[in-house]
């Protein structure tokens, strides 16, 4: 079904499978596009982190690469003043709601936020927005891992792993608006929930929100 087509990303001609999501095509060809929420097997992407913006010739506004399907002859740009501005703002918005203490974080040096900062030349700190105060508690009830909600970027990777891979359904998105969060049903500690502590969600978490206690130095 997936016919090979030619597309152009950042002036590079690339052979790609039609219908595949642009984000994965770019990444496979070593073209970096910031992303947090995209899951390759998910049929209908969440498209919620809003970091993977690209410009496509003939489309008058930036689009998310994780939702856009590859089409023959597509001409794509991953950088432009407008794109860079959107990515910077989106990134800084996430940091304005983040307990930024890399030195004390289990994900230090393997964190997706750090990758985005490095790839895009962004500072891993922001001053434009006031830090949103939270008084979340760390859930360290599981034997081997813990959950620090103050570092969660709401990417949904853990929810997918828990539902689709572990097939448990212990965690999910709860609450609305600025209080949206990933929690167990009724927000009870993981150890008291139906969680089997398979830690597939921990492996899926791209940042230091779900982490192995042993990684905490």
């Amino acid at each position: 079904m997936s016919e090979l087509v030619k597309i152009t990303i950042d002036d590079r001609e690339i052979e790609a499978r039609a219908g595949e999501k642009l984000l994965w095509t770019a990444l496979e060809n070593d073209i970096y596009i910031p992303h947090l929420c995209a899951i390759k097997d998910e049929k209908r992407p969440n498209a919620s982190c809003r970091l993977c913006f690209v410009e496509i010739e003939g489309v008058d506004h930036p689009v998310t690469a994780c939702t856009r399907k590859v089409e023959e002859g597509m001409v794509v740009k991953t950088r432009s003043p407008h794109l860079d501005r959107l990515v910077k703002t989106g990134f800084e918005l996430l940091l304005s709601d983040h307990d930024l203490k890399c030195a004390k974080c289990a994900a230090n040096k393997s964190c997706a936020l750090q990758t985005i900062a490095k790839e895009r030349g962004l500072k891993l700190r922001q001053k434009r927005f006031k830090l949103i105060e939270r008084d979340y508690k760390i859930d360290d009830s599981p034997a081997e891992f813990a959950y620090n909600r103050s570092r969660c970027v709401l990417c949904g990777q853990c929810v997918w792993a828990d539902r689709e891979e572990a097939k448990v359904g212990a965690i999910g998105f709860t609450q609305r608006g600025v209080n949206r969060a990933v929690t167990t049903f009724e927000d009870i500690p993981l150890a008291d929930s139906i969680c089997t502590e398979c830690h597939l969600c921990v492996d899926a978490c791209p940042v230091g929100a779900l982490y192995y206690k042993s990684d905490l130095k």
């Binding site: 498209a47 809003r50 927005f129 006031k130 949103i132 709401l154 609450q175 609305r176 600025v178």
Partner: peptide, 15 residues
Amino acid sequence: ESCGKCTFCRLGTKH
């Protein structure tokens, strides 16, 4: 009324 799903609306409207 923001549902909180996406970054810009969830955090941007708050700021």
